[in-house]
Design a protein around this nucleic acid. Structure first.
Length: 271
DNA sequence: CAATCAACCTGGGTGC
DNA sequence: TGCACCCAGGTTGATT
């Protein structure tokens, strides 16, 4: 589910809502999603206070005041919700962290692909994060982007979604950015002209910023930390618009499979 | 190295 | 109604 803008929205919400709170307990009905184990996580986090929450790639990082932190990946259907303890159980509630002040941080996740992982220290975190590419809204430069694309003959959409190369771009924002840049998602990455690369670079930044501005895309399951939908789905240009008119040229939006993922594009505009 | 596919899970939608 | 099948915002690991 969540891509960079959705994870950013949740992370910002949590920074506002739970910093300063003390962790009182943790329980789960889905032990596989808590790593390395519920017992180890419990021992490491109970009694600690939440110091800071920040996003990196599609991960939420919850920093504690005992040098440890929790990393959370929401995968396709994960939600992170802040609720009062007496509020009814959320749909697909899997992990609950009890907080001071009578609140809970809940991981809800229909498909159980999401996970929460204990990280012991900065060194371990650094090692994990080294596997992810630069941030497209932060340290990724146009020169980096050119280098990344020119280094592979894979379809440009697949290349730009490779988390080892660039962090945070998922299926929705890849489709939207390629439409804005008028580039065929199947085009080999190393065949893009310098102009096209520049246009795509700008388009990526534009759609990610728009996604954040609209608090993410609630196409299916995404909700922010207070359980509210985002609105970016109301602004989709191609995603989920199979058979509808291209907003630029009025021909029909096509849907194909690319790298196993549904891919929407306008075969007339995107060359 | 690249492409393809199955796996991890659950539920909604579609077509027969 | 029932059933079979396809689809889903992500990632990993096996196979070819």
């Amino acid at each position: 589910m969540p891509e960079l803008p959705e994870v950013q929205t949740i992370s910002d919400d949590l920074q506002r809502l739970i910093v300063g709170k003390k962790i009182l307990g943790i329980f789960t009905t889905s032990a596989k999603q808590v790593k390395p184990s519920l017992k180890k996580v419990e021992k490491a986090i109970v009694g600690a206070r939440i110091k800071k929450v920040a996003r990196r790639a599609k991960l939420v990082q919850i920093f504690l005041d005992n040098h440890r932190l929790l990393l959370i990946h929401l995968k396709l259907t994960g939600r992170l919700l802040v609720r009062d303890q007496d509020e009814p159980e959320d749909d697909w509630q899997r992990v609950v962290i009890e907080l001071s002040g009578g609140q809970q941080l809940r991981l809800a996740d229909l498909r159980k692909f999401g996970w929460m992982r204990l990280v012991e220290n900065q060194k371990e975190l650094k090692k994990i994060l080294a596997e992810f590419g630069p941030e497209p809204l932060d340290d990724l430069t146009l020169a980096d982007f050119k280098k990344i694309l020119s280094s592979t003959g894979r379809a440009v959409k697949i290349a730009m979604m490779d988390q080892k190369k660039i962090s945070g771009i998922g299926n929705i924002y890849a489709c939207e950015a390629l439409f804005l840049a008028k580039i065929d998602p199947r085009k080999p990455a190393n065949k893009l002209t310098s102009q096209e690369t520049k246009k795509l670079f700008r388009a990526i930044r534009k759609v990610l910023r728009a996604g954040i501005k609209h608090r993410g895309a609630s196409d299916q399951y995404y909700l922010d930390a207070l359980g509210h939908k985002g609105h970016y789905q109301e602004h989709f240009l191609v995603y989920n618009r199979k058979g509808k008119k291209c907003l630029d040229c009025s021909s029909k939006v096509k849907k194909i499979k690319l790298g196993g993922r549904g891919t929407y594009f306008c075969p007339v505009c995107q060359r």
